[in-house]
Amino acid sequence: MKTLRHITLVVRDYDEALAFYVGKLGFDLVEDSAQPEQDKRWVTIRPPGAGPQATTILLARAATPEQSARVGDQTGGRVAFFLSTDDFDRDHAHFTAAGVTWVRPPVDQPYGRVAVFADLYGNLWDLIGPVPGGACVG
């Protein structure tokens, strides 16, 4: 069996990224370990309730001009991440109250209710939940 263990999200600064993802979005901090020999940290997060075997996001601080140029545009303007929720209205309201920037308002699609938000760097995320009376794609 193979699983996807981590995905990398290039960030400008560890602490500002943690303030957004953990502080605003409510993600869980899985690990934050110093890597002094490489002058970096190993920082991983995951959505709350995702469980210990869930894929984590590795927050990787940009270390070169090329990496810095990609912060916030890792996918060329396309939605980069898809966050599934069991309660769209709850999470949409929580994110709105936390000051998250919505790029596209909620709409009902055959696969679920979806809205697009930008993270602190401009990467686009879908928040996807069940349509009332329908199913949620996860």
Rank of each mutant, 00 (worst) to 15 (best):
P132G: 08
I7Y: 05
R46V: 09
T44S: 07
V131C: 06
T44R: 02
I45E: 06
S68L: 08
P36R: 10
K2H: 11
V11S: 01
F88P: 08
V11P: 02
F95E: 01
D119F: 01
T3Y: 04
Y111F: 15
G49V: 06
R78C: 05
D86N: 11
L4F: 06
W102E: 12
D108K: 00
V79K: 08
L124A: 06
A93E: 12
S33K: 12
A97Y: 13
M1L: 03
V22K: 10
G134W: 07
D108S: 06
E16A: 02
A98Y: 09
P110H: 14
H94T: 11
G112D: 09
D87S: 13
P130D: 05
A19V: 08
L120C: 09
R61G: 05
V116K: 07
R104W: 03
A62K: 04
A63C: 06
I57M: 15
K40T: 14
T55M: 12
H92L: 08
P47I: 01
C136K: 10
V11K: 00
L25H: 07
P52W: 00
I7A: 14
L18R: 03
V107S: 11
T3I: 12
P48E: 12
V10A: 10
R12V: 01
P106W: 04
M1H: 05
L4E: 02
Q67I: 03
A118F: 02
V11Y: 02
H94M: 04
T3L: 03
D119V: 01
D91N: 13
T75G: 03
R113M: 13
Y121E: 09
A60L: 13
T75C: 14
V114Y: 02
Q38A: 15
P48Q: 12
Q53C: 02
A135P: 07
V71P: 05
A118V: 05
G51E: 10
G77N: 11
A69S: 15
Y21S: 10
N123W: 04
T75W: 09
T55W: 01
P36E: 12
P110M: 15
G112L: 07
V137L: 14
D119E: 04
T85S: 13
V30P: 03
V107W: 02
G133V: 05
Y21K: 10
D73A: 10
R5E: 12
D15F: 04
Q67D: 14
D87P: 08
A97K: 15
R41S: 03
D87R: 11
G77R: 09
T44K: 04
G99N: 07
L127Y: 10
Y21Q: 10
E66P: 00
D32S: 12
F95T: 00
F117T: 04
W102P: 08
F81N: 13
L127H: 03
G129M: 11
G77W: 12
H94D: 08
G129V: 13
A135M: 15
V11W: 00
A135C: 10
G76I: 12
I128G: 06
A93F: 03
G49D: 05
Y21C: 11
T55R: 02
Y121I: 03
Y121A: 15
D13S: 12
G112K: 06
Y21R: 07
F82D: 14
Q67V: 07
V107N: 10
A50I: 08
D86P: 09
P65M: 07
H6D: 12
